[in-house]
Each structure stands twice: as C-alpha cells, then as structure tokens.
C-alpha cells in the first residue's frame, strides 16, 4: 500500500488538509469568542491530534489554553508517561481532575459488579472542575462517526448551567459561522474533529509524523477475555470466575479507562500497517468498549448528562 510521503506537500484540496483547516478555524474561533477555554485531554490519539492542531492553529505563539485530564485512576502506565512527556515538551499547564478523589469525597458512588465502569463517574468531577476554574469552553476530541448519537452533535455544542446537553434544542449551525453566545455559568463543548473518521485520524498522524503511545501498536500482553472483549490484565482488571487469561499479540484502537477498553488481535506494528488494518476493519473502534454496549442508547444517555 502506498502511504503518505511526508516529504511531499499534500494538495490543499486533499481531505486531510481541508479537515485540518476546518479544525484550526474552529480552535481560533474558540480562542476569540471565549474567555477561558480548556482542552480535554484523555491521552488517546484523538486528543493528541487535537493538541497537535492547537499548536498549529496558534503558531508561532503557544496555544492560549491549558489541558485538563479527567483521570479515572484506571490508566495504562504508558498513557500517563506519554502525557507527562508531552506536557513538558509543550510547556503548557495540565490540570488533572481525579475521579478517585471525587469517590473519596463522596461526590460520586463507584459502580459495582464485573462491568462496573468509571466512565460515567467522570461527569461530576469534570463539571466541578469546569466551575472551579470557570472554563467557558472545553475542546473534546469526539468525532461524529464514532457513535450514532454523535452524528447530530454540533461543532459548538451548548451546555446549560448543569452541563447538560439537549439534543432536541440544539442551535442550527450554518456555513462556518459558530454561535458561541451564552449566559453566565453556561459553557460550550467544542469538537474540532467532528468531521474526521478513524481513518482520517490515522492518516493525519502518519502525514504529520505525530507521536502516539506505544499501546496503539501491536505488542504482546496478558489479557482477560471478558465476554468477547480482551481487557489488559492490570491492577484493576483481574479474571473473574470462569474467565481465562491468555498472552496475545494485540493492540488498542482506543485507550481510555483500562477496565473497559478492549484490545484487538493485531500484528500491526507500524502506522502503515495500522492504516491497512483500519481500511480492512469490520468493527468500529468503540465496538471494543464494554460501556457502549450496554444498551443501544447508552451513549445518548451519558451525553445528556454531560459526558464528553
């Protein structure tokens, strides 16, 4: 397969250049229209791409907002190491919001059972932090192609004082004019990657030579087979009764909370191989996430409450 020759200047009509320009335009709009934006950084490839775009959008200046990581406490080591290195290189401010602390403080209650997930628990500490720091716009790396409920999400997504999203009452979004008007206490989620697909993200990473955590590349590790999803064996994931642990050659298509992010069998060890694999893939990225599978409308419910 022919991969991008990063030396070669890509035609500006190419889809990647257009998507890049769209994202940069959006980030600059946010910087101009809002007082205190923040970039929600999960450590995954989408938020890494967002950081890369933010760098380009304000070059040669530094981008004018901090990063915020809502930490479930269930991280892969690689994610945190990568995050800290990136932050140091950029010289930006990183705010870490801890779900564990919110649990300890009784702000949220930990789910129980084998499918317990801390994803839903991110909402409260996230909104607490938005209030504490008075952020009025938060960049998220969500893409419309990820999930049905996201297909109708706007670039500028209004949230009321309670951080809630009302899918029935969204502002129409026309041309490239983005309405960021709001009342005090309200905020916006802004999604610069809305129009990107998983394939676009990978191609862009290859085109721009963006560094990403090693978890995305094929490696060997011990995994627990939980109802067809391979979860990495970690301090937070141990086999339940009847489950087996095996050593497999896998990679992750998304990296989030280690308790619900599944690995896939893969020998793809380079970007070229990953792109080839994605082109031939027959399941979505989120197909490997146990939390979305709970019900058909799972994502929509979480979004209404203020999920990313």
């Amino acid at each position: 397969m022919k991969l991008v020759d990063s030396e070669k200047h890509l035609d500006r009509n190419s889809h990647l250049k257009q998507l890049e320009a769209e994202a940069i335009h959006l980030m600059r709009e946010v910087a101009a229209q809002f007082e205190r934006p923040v970039l929600l950084f999960s450590g995954g490839k989408d938020s890494i791409v967002m950081v890369h775009l933010a760098r380009k959008a304000f070059y040669p200046a530094r981008f004018p907002f901090p990063l915020m990581h809502v930490d479930t406490g269930h991280n892969f080591d690689e994610t945190l190491i990568f995050r800290d290195k990136l932050v140091e290189e950029l010289g930006v401010n990183l705010i870490v919001v801890s779900v564990q602390e919110a649990i300890d403080a009784g702000r949220v209650v930990e789910e129980t059972g084998p499918e317990a997930s801390r994803n839903g628990l991110q909402i409260v500490p996230l909104l607490d932090a938005m209030r504490e720091y008075q952020f009025d716009a938060a960049f998220g790396g969500a893409r419309r192609d990820e999930e049905k409920a996201r297909a109708k999400e706007r670039f500028f997504s209004h949230r009321d004082r309670f951080g809630q999203w009302d899918p029935k009452n969204q502002r129409p979004e026309l041309w490239n004019l983005y309405n960021g008007q709001k009342r005090p206490g309200e905020h916006f989620r802004v999604f610069p990657l809305s129009n990107w697909t998983e394939m676009d993200v990978w191609q862009y990473i290859a085109l721009e030579g963006i560094e990403i955590p090693s978890l995305y590349f094929s490696h060997e590790r011990e995994v627990v087979d939980r109802r067809g999803v391979y979860l990495a064996l970690t301090d937070f994931v141990t086999p339940l009764e009847g489950e087996t642990v095996s050593r497999r050659t896998v990679r992750f298509r998304t990296i989030g909370d280690a308790t619900c992010t599944g690995a896939v069998d893969s020998a793809a060890a380079t970007l070229e191989e990953i792109i080839e694999e994605v082109a031939g893939a027959r399941t979505t990225e989120r197909g490997g996430r146990t939390d979305d599978r709970r019900s058909e409308a799972a994502m929509e419910d979480r979004k209404k409450q203020g999920y990313f």
Binding site: M1, L3, D11, N13, S14, Q18, M199, Q203, L207, A279
Partner: peptide, 13 residues
C-alpha cells in the same frame, strides 16, 4: 480497491 489503497490523495465532497 478500498482496502488496498490508503486513500491519501482523496479530495472531499
């Protein structure tokens, strides 16, 4: 074709 090529010189409609 879809799986063979990397879709790099595509444009956008």
């Amino acid at each position: 074709e879809t799986s063979e090529r990397g879709y790099l010189d595509m444009d956008l409609l």
